[in-house]
Amino acid sequence: GAATAAASRPGGAAEAAGSPAQSREPRAVEQRVFVKIAPHAEKPELLARLKQLLQEHPGPVATVLFYEQQQKLLALSDDYRIKPSPTLFSDMEKMLGEGTVKIK
């Protein structure tokens, strides 16, 4: 059987060890950036600036907005996937307030 051949190959065991996580989670565990939108930040011009900023840092990480007042999560489209960096996060927090940006 092919399975036994794979197991006897050096390195086969290591590959098998990695597979349970992958079968449960189609991709590598995906990080996302959560951006808290406080009531005072719910301004169209502010959100437009935020989106502009996100587009200046294209990357692999999805961005999710959390509207504090409505307790509502809004996942942004793939156009707003970003490359997280301390600079980007500090710019976002300058716009939206301290502690509003989390990556998890």
Rank of each mutant, 00 (worst) to 15 (best):
G1M: 12
G1S: 15
A5C: 09
A6P: 03
A6W: 06
A6S: 05
R9H: 09
P10T: 02
P10G: 07
G11K: 08
G11C: 06
G12P: 03
G12D: 05
A13C: 06
A13P: 03
A16S: 11
A16D: 09
A16Q: 14
G18Y: 13
G18K: 14
S19V: 10
P20W: 07
A21N: 03
S23M: 03
E25F: 12
R27E: 12
A28K: 11
V29W: 10
V29D: 12
Q31M: 15
Q31I: 12
Q31N: 13
V33G: 04
F34C: 08
V35N: 04
A38I: 09
A38N: 09
P39E: 00
A41I: 00
A41D: 02
E42G: 03
K43P: 02
K43N: 02
K43R: 05
L46T: 14
R49G: 05
K51R: 15
Q52W: 11
L53D: 09
L53N: 08
L54T: 12
Q55K: 09
E56Q: 14
H57N: 07
G59H: 03
G59P: 01
V61M: 04
A62P: 08
T63S: 15
T63D: 06
V64D: 09
Y67T: 02
Y67K: 00
Q70W: 13
Q70H: 15
K72N: 09
L73D: 03
A75W: 09
A75G: 07
L76Q: 03
L76C: 02
S77K: 01
S77F: 01
S77M: 02
D79T: 10
R81D: 08
I82K: 01
I82F: 04
K83Y: 02
K83E: 01
P84S: 06
S85K: 09
S85A: 15
S85M: 14
P86F: 04
T87D: 07
T87S: 07
T87E: 06
E93Y: 00
K94A: 04
M95C: 02
E98M: 02
T100W: 00
T100S: 01
T100Q: 02
K102L: 11
